[in-house]
Write a protein that binds this DNA or RNA. Sequence first.
RNA 1: GGAGAGGUGGCCGAGCGGCUGAAGGCACUCGCCUGCUAAGCGAGUAGGGGGAUUAAACCCUCUCGUGGGUUCGAAUCCCACCCUCUCCGCCA
Length: 427
Amino acid sequence: MIDPRFLQENLEFVKKKTSERGVEIDFEDITRINEERKRIIRMVEKLEHQRNIGSKKVGELKRQGNDEEAEKLQAGLRDISEKIKELDTKRAQVEEESKSNLLNIPNIPDETVPVGQDDSENVEVKSWGNPRKFNFKFKDHIEIGKSLDILDLERAAKIAGSRFALYKGQGARIDRALINFMIDVHTTEHGYTEVLPPFMAHRESFIGTGNLPKFEHELFRVAETDMYLIPTAEVPVTNIHREETLSEGDLPKKYVAYTPCFRKEAGSYGKDVHGIMRQHQFNKVELVKFVTPENSYDELETLTNDAARILELLKIPYRVVVLCTGEMGFSSAKTYDLEVWVPSENRYREISSCSNFEDFQARRANIRYRKKNSGKPKYVHTLNGSGLAIGRTVIAILENFQSPDGSVTIPEVLVSYMGGEERISPP
RNA sequence: GGAGAGGUGGCCGAGCGGCUGAAGGCACUCGCCUGCUAAGCGAGUAGGGGGAUUAAACCCUCUCGUGGGUUCGAAUCCCACCCUCUCCGCCA
């Protein structure tokens, strides 16, 4: 949520910024409702003031034993209370409307974010390693998975329908190995605290991160409850500190979590229908930070580097792009995508998305911190990034490290996690 | 799922329907004191919203798990829900 006061004082600026995202919002309507809200509040509070003074007087009179006067006063106060009650329902309506307006406004992009409409206007800021040149006819991850007997998409469909995977043998093991490897690196070398959160969360948590109310269609709702399956660990982990006031000395807080992620992928039909690129369920290791506003952009850089480090250890070529305004997620102020080289597609594909949300989520989830020496609590800045998406890492390994004989070489850092196996060979 | 206990400020904890936005403690901040540290002494420290102001000081209002109700007036009484703890049952 953006700062309501900032919105009113910088209406034109906000208008410009949201339109750069490709979002059109009726700010006139929002302003109108906000004015109406303030008007009603003023009226209610005036009446409440009268009532409070009157009530106090009633108390005094009664103590003096002057019941006659007290009762006279009470009659008048009764009317005031009635009026307050009426106005209160109106107030509740208007406040809800106003709140819902605010919840549907996306975050303001940081000034360093390139303005653009689609991914062609993302800007590459770094690339690492060189895409491999194959001197044999290489396969895509689906063929490799099938020939190594580690990936069975047909049977997965039998179990749950399309967009699910059944990993087998070394396939299942490499997925698990990657989870452990990534968590170990982030905890022991990057200073993150490991957490294992709930894989579902209720509505409030999803509002906190910005997934609700706007993006319900992307989520699996658990029938007959107000819970949803998480689309990313960002949701439960960011909400660890919902409604809390942290102290400045506790910051930054850094968490790493493995969770499966569940996404409807509605509207993406026709995209990535083959293989495991885009699934209803996939594993991911997620990094989440709570930091002070002063250094959130530095923290975004290190967060991105922390994620990228995994790819460097695995020796998978990647690049980093800054998402342009039109490509960024609803809650983000600035996002770097890490993209790995996928030979079968002859291009880079997203494997991690690292964002600074500034105080957008913190305001929604009411996550604040108190400065050491002074006064008012302020909102923290939240950040998160995949560190990394496991399924897509599997794709990258299978395709980038395949050999002419059909086997796949296990990255060196992963060997110990694979029980010493150095390659996966056809059965 | 059944029975009981309980949810109060950054934390712990007291609280008769009106003088309680809330005792007391802890923590923190500032000052004093001490050669330093510890201790001691004194003062201060909740949040949201609405208004005034160049800004702060200031004024009003709401907030004691959440939402309703009773009442002139609710932390306090009533109802519903949520959560936590203890015991029982069931279960990975």
